[in-house]
Amino acid sequence: MTEKLPETMAEKPSGKISHLTGQVNYFEDFEVGAKMRHARGTTIGEVENQLLTKLVMNTADAHFNEHKMNRSPFGQRLVFGLVTGSMVIGLASQDTAENALAELRFDKFRFRAPVFHGDTIYAYTEVLEKRSAEREDAGIVRFKHWGVKHDDTIVFEGEREVLIKRRSHWCEQ
């Protein structure tokens, strides 16, 4: 790069970290009952289903043997339920856990309908509960997440508790 950097970019990094994450998803920002429709969707293909299923040592070839599954009642490979769950919680994560200190619990995961290669998944979230944590710099938010296919079929639902930073303690001025 030959051009002189703009003044602000030539400065040394500030050492701050709060600029790396969003400013609207600290613990203080979540309100019980708030509903979020997450912006991005994802189509499930070989990378999502086949790669992640194998990466996590799931040996069930219903997820990666198209020849066998052609002869099953499903007619094709099934997407591993936890791949669907991972994608739904992933799609929801920037809005719900970008400022997390930890994900504490998942609960009531339901795999309500089969997902196949080529299906597109969107994520929806409702804030169920907020409470203080043992540490004063963060609080716990309980979310309910839904995964919905392009044809409006609900394929996944589940709850999740996240320990989220308080702006008052973590957002440098």
Partner: peptide, 22 residues
């Protein structure tokens, strides 16, 4: 994934997971 061969590989859909604590 490590539990699949022992528990669920022979076939039958995943119904649910409860009470996951990290």
């Amino acid at each position: 994934g490590l539990s699949v061969e022992d528990l669920s590989e022979a076939g039958g859909v995943f119904l649910g997971i409860e009470d996951v604590v990290f």
